[in-house]
Amino acid sequence: MDNEHTEKTRLDWRILFGVTVTTLWMTTGIYYVTRVVGWTQFQSLPTADIGSFFEGAFAPLAFLWLVIGHFMQQKEITANTRATTMQEQSTRRLELHSRRDSYFKLLGLVQEQLGSIAGFHYVSVFGPTGSDEVTLEEFSTLRSEASTGDHSLFIRRMVSAAASNRDDAEAVTEMLFGTEIRTRHSDNFKRTFGRLLDAAESVDTDNMLREALLEGSAAGLYYRIIRHVAGDEEMDPISGIRNTIP
């Protein structure tokens, strides 16, 4: 704080230079009039000559201060430009921070939506209309568990089912796209997660968030499985082998 105050109150060297030159110039002029011309003779000069004398005497000073003022103005412009740039950078950081906050709020809602989509897909595959391995009562219990905060419960179960049948391409395809309802759920999950990835790219220039979602989450793995089965991705995300599932 003291350094900032000192910086503000310290005179610029250009002003000190101008004051010094002006003082020397004025002292020299007074000395010239006093010792060389004499005040008596100077006062007896015609008014036009006195005006010409002062014009010639002060013209160099006027030019000097004009130049000093120009450089001082350039300094102020540079300082204002620097301040404006810093303000713009600060505004960008605040905007990015605000966008990230909004994204993470959105992330929680979308993860809940993805879990709900996977839940309906799960009951379609393993419920009464599917293999009948899960009753509606069991499904309701699982949904209650998922609603308490474990939004990826059904996603993990779908990933586990796909992994268990990774050697049976037809079974995985049937599970994800075997009926119109399952196809709709798979497409809905893929579209929603894809938009989440696009939003992650807009708030994270290093793509760390996108990679974490795609590579380090159950939803990302399930998204890649759906894309692989749909033919949008060559690499099988479960086995790491290309084209194991057509």
Rank of each mutant, 00 (worst) to 15 (best):
G38I: 12
Y223M: 05
F126Y: 09
D101H: 06
T244F: 02
K75Y: 13
N243T: 09
T28D: 05
L142Y: 08
A83N: 10
L45P: 03
P128A: 14
E88H: 11
L64K: 01
W13C: 01
E215Q: 11
F71H: 08
D232T: 11
L213A: 05
S102L: 13
R92I: 14
A83G: 07
F177L: 13
S160F: 14
Y103V: 12
E138K: 15
I225M: 06
P60W: 04
A218W: 05
N3F: 15
H97W: 12
A163I: 13
E201Q: 11
D101M: 11
A230K: 01
F58G: 02
F53C: 09
S144E: 02
G51R: 11
R242N: 04
D2E: 10
L197I: 14
F58I: 15
V33K: 01
S152A: 15
E201P: 05
N165W: 07
A163Y: 05
L196V: 09
D232W: 10
E138F: 08
T205A: 13
E174N: 04
T20E: 02
P60F: 05
G127F: 04
L214P: 06
H5C: 10
N80Y: 10
M1C: 07
R224E: 01
R227D: 03
S124A: 12
A169S: 15
D168P: 03
E215C: 09
A146E: 01
I226M: 01
I245P: 00
V159L: 09
D12M: 10
V172C: 06
W25C: 08
G130P: 09
A219H: 02
M26N: 04
G194Q: 02
M175N: 00
T20R: 07
E137M: 07
A62C: 07
T78W: 10
K8L: 14
A57W: 12
T9W: 05
T192L: 05
A169D: 12
T22N: 00
F104S: 07
S98I: 09
F126R: 07
D198H: 14
G149F: 05
T23A: 03
R242M: 03
E211H: 13
L16R: 07
I155M: 03
S202Y: 09
E170I: 13
F54W: 15
Q87T: 15
S90T: 15
T47Q: 07
V159P: 00
A83K: 12
L107S: 11
